[in-house]
């Protein structure tokens, strides 16, 4: 057997596998392609960044209601706003300060504050990624974590486009993933802790469909103040947290711009490769035939010994 023949066969072998990933996956087969109307009744929060004054009371409320570790720096200390922070073990929501109009204090440039927490995506990447289904999108809206299933691989943290899940790296035996639950333990009797605690009433809790209408109404009446789009209406396939922003989202560190759910591409690839198990089975049969042929040829040539 010459080399060219080998390469040809090798190419076909590879092709059989690869062909799988080239077939465009059906939207529904991959679990995507949801109708936005499906999420209309989800619990959601509309956050108005123009009202937020960066007081960090929501962070404190989150810490208290979830019974989290005490932070090194007290929640009253606003100096921490000088640095950009992310969610951690002490709070599942953080306020960051931005100067989208320029950061020269003498020019009276106004800061804009932005609250960040789990966005509770309609089609969450963490849920798509989780190896054991420890994360799930509930029909009510919140994306919830089940520690009894979690094996601690931290793939959800790799997947989340918003960098939200927190892992207890200092816990040797029982580390868990922590993230906002939309205060599922409080609703529907009480509002989520951060929403309730906000002195500015910057947040409105409700059903996603209603909040979108409300948000668009506010934008229409104040076109000079707000961006025309609600961040989260379509972002990453839509989220339960909806942001009314005075400046383009990029200026507030909201770098996720795509309307495609982060898990969609990898799911499409994955489901194409495994479509009804056709590509793997085809590859198996192909290899079997190849082996069968070579063993037949050996028997015919009666072990003429080393080829070539």
């Amino acid at each position: 057997m010459d080399r060219r023949k080998f390469l040809k066969n090798a190419a076909v072998t590879g092709g059989a596998v690869i062909a799988g990933s080239m077939i465009p996956g059906e939207a529904h087969a991959s679990g995507h392609g949801h109708d936005p109307a499906e999420f209309e009744n989800n619990y959601a929060v509309l956050y108005d960044a123009t009202k937020c004054i960066g007081c960090r009371i929501c962070e404190l409320a989150c810490n208290m209601t979830n019974d989290l570790d005490k932070p090194d720096i007290d929640f009253k200390d606003l100096r921490v706003l000088a640095k950009k922070r992310r969610t951690d073990e002490t709070t599942h929501t953080v306020i960051n300060r931005f100067y989208p109009y320029g950061d020269d204090a003498r020019m009276n440039h106004k800061p804009v504050f932005l609250k960040q927490q789990c966005m509770h995506c309609n089609e969450p990447a963490c849920v798509s990624a989780c190896i054991v289904g420890a994360l799930r999108k509930t029909p009510e809206g919140p994306v919830l974590y089940d520690e009894s299933a979690c094996i601690g691989c931290r793939y959800c943290m790799i997947a989340c486009p918003f960098q939200i899940p927190v892992f207890e790296f200092d816990e040797p035996l029982f580390p868990v993933i922590q993230k906002c639950t939309l205060c599922i333990h409080r609703i529907p009797d009480k509002l989520p802790a951060c929403v309730e605690a906000c002195p500015q009433e910057a947040m409105t809790f409700g059903r996603r469909g209603d909040l979108l209408k409300l948000g668009h109404g506010i934008i229409e009446q104040n076109t000079d103040i707000y961006e025309t789009e609600i961040y989260g209406e379509h972002t990453a396939g839509g989220t339960s947290w909806l942001y009314l922003l005075p400046v383009p989202p990029v200026k507030l560190g909201l770098l996720v711009q795509s309307d495609v759910p982060a898990g969609q591409l990898s799911e499409t690839i994955q489901h194409s490769v495994f479509k009804y198990f056709i590509p793997p089975v085809a590859l198996y049969i192909f290899l079997f035939l190849m082996m069968f042929r070579s063993s037949r040829m050996d028997n015919k040539s009666n072990h003429e010994g080393e080829e070539e």
């Binding site: 798509s128 990624a129 054991v132 289904g133 979690c150 601690g152 691989c153 793939y155 799911e267």
Partner: peptide
């Protein structure tokens, strides 16, 4: 490297199978 290594066997059993996860595959 697994945080909750004592549950490493979860992916083996259908109860925890998650067909959308690349890591599972």
């Amino acid at each position: 490297d697994l945080g909750r290594y004592w549950l490493f066997w979860h992916p083996i059993f259908p109860r925890w199978w998650q067909g959308n996860s690349v890591l599972f595959e």
